[in-house]
Design a protein around this nucleic acid. Structure first.
Length: 485
RNA sequence: GGCCCCAUCGUCUAUCGGUUAGGACAUCAGGUUUUCAUCCUGGUAAGGGGGGUUCGACUCCCCCUGGGGUCACCA
C-alpha cells in the first residue's frame, strides 16, 4: 500500500509547537514508508481569517525543512499548488463539500436545519440549566418535505446537520487500540454552515478520501469526534484510513499547552534564538524515543526508528529547561562560520566581522540561546565599574595584585601586535611569562582577567586579550592599576 | 456534570511477567580551571491506592483515586 499522510493546519498566523510535532510525525511516517506527505490548508472558518497566514505558515515549514509532496508552496512570492489532488485550500473546494453534503441529505443521513443561532444558544442554556447534555433537539427534523422545500426556495438561511443514528461506534487507534463511543454522545453535527463553508468534520473526511490519505495522525483532542468521521466514511462508502491520535503537549501544570502559559509558536522560539534542529529534536522526543540511549538524534534517525505503536499514550509536559540544554548542545555542534551567521540577525549594532568571529568562538560553549549574543557583546564593549577588592585573588593580597598588574602590563606592552591575532600564541606567551618568573597562575591571571572583563566571572584572560586586542587591553589594565592609587 | 483518554524519578523517557527499575534535563556533591562556562565523576529522586490472575507483577484484569481532553454554524 502506498502510504500517504497529511498535515492540515488552520492558518492562524503562527505554527503551534504541538502542530509542529504533528507535522513532524506525519512527515517521519511518510518518509519511513516511502510514502507521500501533503499540506492542506483548513481555512473554513472565515471569522478566523488572518491575512498572510498561509504565506507565513509555508515560510515556517520551509525554515523547519519540512517539505511536502503536495500542497501550496511559494513561488516568486506567490502561492502556487503542487500535486494532482488540489485545490489544497479548503476555501477553494466549497463546491465539492456542497455536493457531498447534498448527497447525504438525499440519502437521508443528513438534514437541513433552519434554526437560528439565537434559538440554538437559548436551547443550550436551557439544557445546561437542567444539567442535560447540550444537544440539538432535532426540531427541524420534524419539518415536512413541503415545508423544507418552501423554506429552501425562499432562500431561508440553513445548515446541513448529520442525523446521528442510534447505536455505538467503535474505531481502532494505532496508539490506543479500540475505542467505543455511544452514538448518543454525539450531537447532530453541522456539516455545512449557513455561509456555504463546511465544518471541519465534513471537510476532513471528504478531503482525506479524495486526496488519498491513508493515515490520519493528529492530536488527541480529536478522539471524541472520530465516531462522526467514521459515520461519514461509512455513509459515503469511503474506506477508513488508519487513525493515530498523538498525546497532547502540556503546560507545566499539565493542561493543554496554551499561549497564556508561555510561548507556543515556533516563530517565537526562533525569535528567542532557538535553532530549528534543536526544536525538531526536542519536540520529536515529546512522545517517543527512538533508541532510549541518548537524546540527540538526526532527522534520519527519527525517520528510521519511527513507529506509531511506539508513541506514548500520556501527555508530555513541555520543559523549556531541557530545550535550552538541547539548544546549547546544538550550538556547540555548529561550525564557527555557521554560528557566526546564525548569530548575526540578533546583533543590535555593528560588530567588526573578525571580532565577532572571535567572540563567537569563545561564547559557543557559554550560551544556550543565539539571542544571548547581544548581552555578551555588550560585556566586551563596555566594562562595569569594579572595586579594587575584586581585583585581588582569594589566595593573594592587594599589594601583590597591584604589582602583578604592573608587571603584566609591561610584559604585554612588549608583545608584538601579531601575537594578539592568535589565541594559542597569547596563551603561550602569558604562560611562559608566569613560568619564567616563577609565579602562580592565580596571582597573575585573576587580576588580569578582572581588569579586562570587569567581572568576577568571565572568559579567560587569554580569550579576552584575543578579542580586545593590545590597545584596548592595555587601556583596561592601566585603568585597573589606577584603582589602587 | 456526561462521555472518552491517560497514570514509572520534579520533567522527558526505557523496561512489552523474573532488572540492584536504566538514560537524559533539572538538582546536589566532587574533579579539571585564575573565575565562570564547557567537560568528567558520583549522589538524591519513580512504578497513586486497593483487589485479583500468576510460582512471580511496574508490566495482564477489575475497582477507586488523580490528571487531561471533549461536549460550537472553531479547527
Amino acid at each position: 500500500m502506498n502510504i500517504k499522510t497529511r498535515f492540515p493546519p488552520s492558518p492562524t498566523g503562527y505554527l503551534h509547537v504541538g502542530s509542529l510535532r504533528t507535522a513532524l510525525y506525519n512527515y517521519f511516517y511518510a518518509k519511513k514508508h516511502n510514502g507521500t506527505f501533503l499540506l492542506r490548508i483548513e481555512d473554513t472558518d472565515r471569522e478566523r481569517y488572518v491575512a498572510g497566514a498561509v504565506e507565513s505558515l509555508i515560510g515556517t515549514l520551509d525554515r523547519m525543512k519540512i517539505d511536502y509532496d503536495e500542497g501550496p508552496v511559494m513561488k516568486n512570492g506567490k502561492i502556487v499548488e503542487k500535486g494532482g489532488n488540489g485545490p489544497y485550500a479548503q476555501s477553494a473546494r466549497l463546491e465539492i463539500y456542497k455536493k457531498y453534503a447534498k448527497q447525504l441529505v438525499d440519502s437521508g443521513y443528513a438534514y437541513h436545519c433552519f434554526c437560528s443561532k439565537e434559538r440554538l444558544s437559548e436551547l443550550r442554556e436551557q439544557q445546561q440549566e437542567i444539567k442535560q447534555t447540550t444537544k440539538y433537539d432535532r426540531a427541524c427534523l420534524k419539518l415536512s418535505s413541503e415545508e423544507i422545500k418552501t423554506k429552501l426556495e425562499s432562500g431561508e438561511s440553513n445548515v446541513i446537520r448529520m442525523k446521528i443514528p442510534e447505536g455505538k461506534t467503535t474505531f481502532h487507534d494505532e496508539i490506543r487500540g479500540d475505542i467505543t463511543i455511544e452514538n448518543q454522545e454525539n450531537d447532530d453535527q453541522v456539516l455545512l454552515k449557513a455561509d456555504g463553508f463546511p465544518t471541519y468534520h465534513l471537510a476532513v473526511v471528504v478531503d482525506d478520501h479524495l486526496m488519498g490519505v491513508t493515515h490520519v495522525i493528529r492530536g488527541e483532542e480529536w478522539i471524541s469526534s472520530v465516531p462522526k468521521h467514521v459515520m461519514l466514511y461509512t455513509w459515503f462508502g469511503f474506506p477508513l484510513p488508519t487513525f493515530a491520535h498523538l498525546p497532547l503537549i502540556l503546560n507545566t501544570d499539565k493542561s493543554k499547552l496554551s499561549k497564556r502559559q508561555g510561548d507556543v509558536a515556533v516563530e517565537d522560539y526562533f525569535a528567542k534564538g532557538f535553532l530549528e534542529e534543536a526544536l525538531e529534536n526536542f519536540v520529536s522526543l515529546l512522545g517517543y524515543n527512538p533508541t532510549a540511549d541518548r537524546e540527540i538524534y538526526t532527522r534520519e534517525e527519527f525517520i528510521e526508528h519511527f513507529e506509531l505503536t511506539k508513541i506514548n499514550k500520556s501527555g508530555a509536559v513541555f520543559d523549556v529547561n531541557k530545550l535550552l540544554w538541547m539548544n546549547g548542545q546544538y550550538i556547540k555542534m555548529l561550525s564557527d562560520e555557521t554560528f557566526v551567521a546564525k548569530v548575526k540577525p540578533f546583533l543590535k549594532g555593528e560588530v567588526e566581522d573578525d571580532i565577532l568571529r572571535r567572540i563567537c568562538v569563545i561564547e559557543k560553549t557559554r550560551i544556550n540561546l543565539l539571542s544571548e549574543i547581544t548581552t555578551v557583546i555588550d560585556s566586551y564593549q563596555s566594562i562595569t565599574n569594579f572595586s579594587k577588592e575584586m581585583l585581588v585573588w582569594k589566595k593573594s593580597d592587594s599589594e601583590d595584585a597591584k604589582l602583578q598588574l604592573k608587571n603584566i602590563f609591561e610584559f604585554i606592552s612588549s608583545l608584538d601586535d601579531s601575537v594578539f591575532n592568535n589565541l594559542e600564541l597569547i596563551e603561550q606567551a602569558i604562560a611562559g611569562y608566569i613560568k619564567d618568573n616563577g609565579l602562580q597562575n592565580g596571582n597573575v591571571l585573576w587580576p588580569l582577567r578582572v581588569s579586562l572583563s570587569g567581572a568576577e566571572r568571565s572568559p579567560s584572560p587569554f580569550e579576552l586579550l584575543w578579542v580586545l586586542q593590545k590597545q584596548e587591553s592595555m587601556k583596561r589594565i592601566e585603568h585597573a592599576i589606577k584603582i589602587f592609587t
